[in-house]
Design a protein around this nucleic acid. Structure first.
Lengths: 139, 139
DNA sequence: CACGATTTGTTCGTATGTATG
DNA sequence: TCATACATACGAACAAATCGT
C-alpha cells in the first residue's frame, strides 16, 4: 500500500490513498475516516506519519475533526447564492483564525472577498456560498 | 513571549506572533522568517513545535518555503483580471496537489472555480486572479 | 457517579536525508 | 568539505473530551 522506499513521502502516499477513497465516494461525506491508531496498525507506520497525512487532508478541506469522536469526511453544505453586481471584483484567500471563527468556517476552506463597486467588501465562505452574476435583470 | 501554561497551544501562540509580524509589515513580503533553529533557541521550544507553527502559516498562505534557503513571507503577485459574464457562478476551494502543480499555486492558496453559463468551468489561482464584473461594455 | 476505553491534541527527543552556499 | 535549513520518520508521554458499562 505505502512504500517507505518510494520517492514520495509515506505521509503523502497515505494522504493520496485516503483522498482517492474520499473522492471516489468509498468514504462518503459525514462518514468516519479510520482512526489514527487504526491507520498506524494497518500500514505499519508511526502516528506522527499518520497525523501528517491527516493534516494534508484537513488543509485541503476534505476532512473535519470531530474530537474526540473521530475524523469525518467533510459534508459540504448546500451553497447559498450571493448576487454580484456590475463593477464588483472577487478574490479568494485563506481566512485568518479570527475570520474562521466568526464565519464558522472549517479548516481548509477558503473565503471569497467581494469588493463592491463602492469600495465596500464582503466575506463569504468559499464552501457555503456561490457567487452569481444574473443573466437578466430580475423583476 | 509564549507561555507553556496558557490555554492556547505554544505552536499556536508562536503562529500568532509571527502572523502579527507579517500582517503588520514588520516582516515584509519576500523577507526571510527566522529559521526553525533560531526560533527554537529564541523561545526555548522544540523544533517540532516550531514546525507546527510554520505549518499553520503555510496553510494560511502567509509564508512559502524556499528550501533549503529558508522560509519567506509570501509575496502576492499582481492579480490578473478575469472578466465575468452574465450567468456565471463562482465558488472557491483548496486545490488538489495535482491542480496546485498544474497552476503553480503555493500551499495555502485557494482556487476560484468559475462556471460559465454554458456549463464549462475554469480554474483560477485565488491569489493571482481577480474576477471582475464589468460595469459597462468595453472598447 | 465512577471508571476505563477511545480518539485527537500537544510536546518533547532523536535520527537521517537532501539541497544550497 | 562543512555548515545551514527544511523534510521525513520513529518513539514516547501526557492532556482533554466523549462514550459505554
Amino acid at each position: 500500500m505505502v512504500d517507505p522506499n518510494a520517492d514520495r513521502a509515506v505521509f503523502r502516499q497515505l494522504a493520496d490513498l485516503l483522498r482517492d477513497r474520499i473522492l471516489s465516494g468509498e468514504l462518503a461525506p459525514g462518514e468516519k475516516v479510520p482512526s489514527e491508531l487504526r491507520l498506524t496498525q494497518e500500514y505499519g507506520i508511526s502516528r506522527t506519519t499518520v497525523r501528517q497525512a491527516m493534516a494534508v487532508l484537513r488543509a485541503e478541506g476534505l476532512v473535519v475533526v470531530d474530537r474526540p469522536r473521530g475524523t469525518r469526511v467533510r459534508a459540504a453544505e448546500a451553497p447559498e447564492t450571493v448576487t454580484l453586481r456590475k463593477g464588483d471584483t472577487v478574490i479568494a484567500r485563506m481566512p485568518s483564525p479570527a475570520e474562521r471563527r466568526e464565519l464558522d468556517i472549517a479548516e481548509g476552506v477558503p473565503v471569497m472577498v467581494v469588493t463592491r463597486a463602492d469600495g465596500s467588501t464582503e466575506l463569504y465562505s468559499g464552501d457555503r456560498t456561490e457567487l452569481f452574476y444574473p443573466p437578466v435583470s430580475r423583476r
